[in-house]
Nucleic acid binder design. Structure first.
Lengths: 309, 309
DNA sequence: CGTGTGCCATCAGGTAAAATTATCATAGGT
DNA sequence: ACCTATGATAATTTTACCTGATGGCACACG
């Protein structure tokens, strides 16, 4: 009789997310009839209707919505149980799905990945590079295990740990003659065209916040997809940009670029790890944090070398 | 690969409880090979050994023990989910597994059950009468839904609600001539043989506590299994006993029995309901509590009528 | 006013999973 | 040395579940 299975709850959770039998079935990698059957089976076991079938999508019943919440909790706990089991054998062994924001990945991963491979050869790393919003969504959905991004992250299910402070520097064309000025100010930015990443990048928002600009009015609407492109544009004389210090080593190499720090208080972002509060893999995250800190030191050292004051 | 099922966790939970494949299989109502297979499957999915197989029972590995704890939590949540679904349609509908202690059942159930049937005709009641320890065990294991017993209950997973105060009265043979005394005292008890229920009954412990008797030395070691038997013995002149007031109506009828109250402060026990903290059936328990209170009033009224001072 | 489209249910068939019964292997206890 | 208890294994049957094809229905659109 009351013979509920995890599979049924998984299908129902997908259905609640997608609001659509077909898409939910896709998300579960089964055919639509298979999912329909399991949902019906679940409704029969529970003795209540969970969803109202209508054309043009579906709607959860009130009880269905409550069940969906409980189902999601249950599935999270199940995932944690499996995580615990599969990774309790040793630190950073087995698979780790690692999400990194685009303004960090190209600069911290090059030193980090070799260290990871050397220190934890049993680790099977799956990398994902995208914007913060997508990363956090996928983290809470259980599609990623840990993130490397700019803090803070405000989600109630997410726990974070700061690792390194990454100052923002002002990047401008070398050609610009600044008459010996060594410290940038906010006012300096307003005097020139500010180039930023496209919408959705946290770096863009942080830069705008620092410049006290709510809207994009005074800023180019170009929206580049990578910092490399921005830097290319800056060195071509198309404008200036805020460049995180970790990028300097890579981006200022062999380019017509001048990078100067800001006057105090210097703007910066805090980079750190983020994971689901419920994750049992704290040991893994500690170990990873240590290596990220190490990689950060290396990267910042290179940045200093690239800007010999 | 990681294709863990609720069934596997249920089997593993049973195995962790029973420490024995055969008994665990019995508890799950399957054959031993079926359970063995599922445990192996679970171990394969999780990638770790959960139990050490030895002759003469088994032993959980350290990780197995942790998994067992998590599995139990998961199964509890699953049970709550199903409970919520199956009983969200209406108050006190569907099945309710109701445990009652032996010193209460014969006195409160006769008025309670007809009221329940009348007020909640859709309720399918399963009754269990046994001692407190068994009731609470079965409650936390999910084999019962709600208990009616003497408070307090100290288990961390159990929530309680007091319903009625049940005074203890002194019962003695009618023949005993008490020269007009109307109030009993502790000293009176020590002057005669105190008859009690067998070990395990909370009523026995409460009586002993009231009499400040730690051990059974001064008390009969007979240990009756029902209050009726005790009362029978009292009226036969074999001793005296502490009789809860709710019993008086039934037990003193057509017997050679004298029942007198104690001097202040009168000893008493608190009867109430108990349920798992996590249970989603609070509405059911409220409704049940109301009817139990009603039944208590009726029963105590009858007790008064039976002892016309 | 039909016709097409999107959405979910149903059906039939095959395959994989899991249960049962029966049997085996081994370590202890006597 | 034998018996017993315990869990693993094997063979078979039963059950569960998925796929692919089909059906019905409401709505949008020509």
């Amino acid at each position: 009789m009351a013979h509920v299975t995890l599979k049924q709850l998984k299908y129902f959770d997908a259905l609640a997310r997608e609001q659509h039998f077909g898409r939910a079935a896709d998300a579960c990698a089964v055919t639509q009839p298979a999912l329909s059957m399991q949902i019906q089976e679940l409704e029969a076991s529970l003795g209540i209707a969970l969803v109202e079938r209508t054309r043009s999508g579906i709607k959860l019943t009130p009880k269905g919505a409550e069940i969906a919440v409980r189902a999601q909790r249950l599935l999270n706990d199940a995932r944690d149980l499996i995580d615990f089991a599969q990774h309790s054998t040793g630190v950073l062994s087995g698979s780790l799905r690692f999400g990194v924001i685009p303004s960090v990945a190209p600069y911290l991963l090059p030193p980090l990945l070799p260290m990871l491979r050397a220190t934890y050869p049993d680790l099977v790393l799956h990398l994902r590079e995208t914007q913060t919003q997508h990363l956090t969504d996928e983290l809470v959905e259980g599609k990623l295990d840990v993130l490397l991004l700019a803090l803070p992250v405000k989600h109630p299910d997410i726990e974070t740990r700061p690792i390194l402070e990454d100052r923002f520097l002002l990047a401008m064309p070398q050609s610009k003659n600044l008459s010996g000025r060594v410290r940038a100010t906010k006012e300096l930015i307003e005097s020139d065209r500010l180039l930023l990443l496209e919408e959705g990048h946290c770096l863009r928002d942080q830069a705008l916040t620092f410049c006290s600009l709510q809207q994009v009015d005074t800023v180019n609407t170009f929206g580049a997809t990578s910092l490399s492109t921005i830097v290319e544009m800056v060195s071509a004389g198309l404008g200036i940009t805020l460049l995180p210090e970790i990028c300097v080593g890579v981006e200022s190499r062999s380019r017509d670029l001048k990078v100067i720090p800001f006057a105090e208080p210097q703007p910066s972002r805090t980079l750190g790890l983020a994971w689901r509060k419920s994750s049992p893999r704290q040991a893994d995250f500690n170990a990873l944090a240590a290596l990220v800190a190490e990689a950060g030191k290396i990267t910042l050292k290179r940045a200093e070398d690239a800007t010999p004051a």
